[in-house]
């Protein structure tokens, strides 16, 4: 399933296994690890099902390596829906460039990123090196979830790989840019959280009044752009006034 063998179409039942999740859902699991190629298969399957709309399908929930398929047992069965999905064919899409790359302004350190110094100490880097590494990486939106609009962005450079904090915070402010394990993320709303907070962005990532309600779409690219306190404040004001348009890097067709 590794890259390299692009454009090989194979049936889903030859690539994935079905796992039981009660009588209204099942998982289509493509692997057991976090890997862009596996994740691409998950999102491609979600897109195929959104198009095909088989009878009884309610919704799908993509995650790193599996797709949770919710169905209505009064209109179909796990058996029937799995037979349908299993026969769909998927192409490998590894190595494809992200359709668009968001540029997310971040104020690093200080009150905006209270764990930056700790992260530097734990990784043996300077704060400036942590920022350069974090902002110098092109991330991929693997999954949105756990919180509305929380995007798991990977992969974080190995040099920044840290376990979660031993004691999670009760309240993480919205816009906090955080890292843990091999991921970065942005807290869209205030919530408890165990990741290391290294900065803050004034952008909004979830708005229930819009459809779709999130800024990112899985597969998108994300780059963090360091900004100073003044620019952060100016953007915050623009966002509040509804006149901020996030930067997107030119998308290859």
């Amino acid at each position: 399933m590794a890259g390299g063998q692009a454009m090989t179409a194979r049936r889903i039942d030859a690539r994935a296994r079905f796992l039981p999740v009660g009588d209204t859902a099942f998982a289509v699991e493509f692997g057991d690890r976090i890997d862009p190629a596996i994740n691409a298969l998950v999102h491609r399957t979600a897109a195929l099902l959104a198009e095909a709309r088989p009878e009884g399908l309610v919704e799908t929930v993509p995650s790193f390596r599996s797709l949770l398929v919710h169905y209505d047992p009064l209109r179909t069965s796990a058996q029937a829906l799995q037979a349908f999905i299993g026969a769909l064919e998927l192409e490998d899409e590894a190595g494809q460039a992200p359709p668009r790359i968001w540029r997310i302004p971040v104020l690093y350190g200080g009150e905006a990123g209270p764990d930056l110094t700790e992260v530097a100490a734990a990784t043996g880097l300077s704060a400036a090196e942590v920022i350069a590494l974090h902002a110098g990486t092109l991330y991929r939106v693997y999954v949105q979830g756990f919180l509305p609009g929380f995007a798991y962005l990977g992969d974080l450079p190995e040099a920044l790989d840290l376990p979660r904090r031993t004691s999670p915070r009760v309240r993480v402010p919205p816009g906090s840019v955080a890292i843990a394990q091999r991921m970065s993320g942005i807290y869209p709303v205030e919530s408890p959280g165990g990741w290391h907070l290294i900065g803050n962005t004034p952008l909004r990532f979830f708005d229930p009044a819009r459809t779709p309600p999130t800024l990112f779409t899985p597969g998108d690219g994300v780059r963090f752009v360091p900004v100073g306190a003044d620019e952060h404040a100016a953007i915050r004001e623009d966002v509040a006034q509804g006149r901020f348009v996030p930067d997107v890097e030119g998308a290859p067709a």
Binding site: G22, V61, S63
Partner: peptide, 10 residues
């Protein structure tokens, strides 16, 4: 586990 989707009743 590697995080995956949760159904109500899980």
């Amino acid at each position: 586990i590697v995080s995956d989707g949760i159904a109500t009743g899980a």
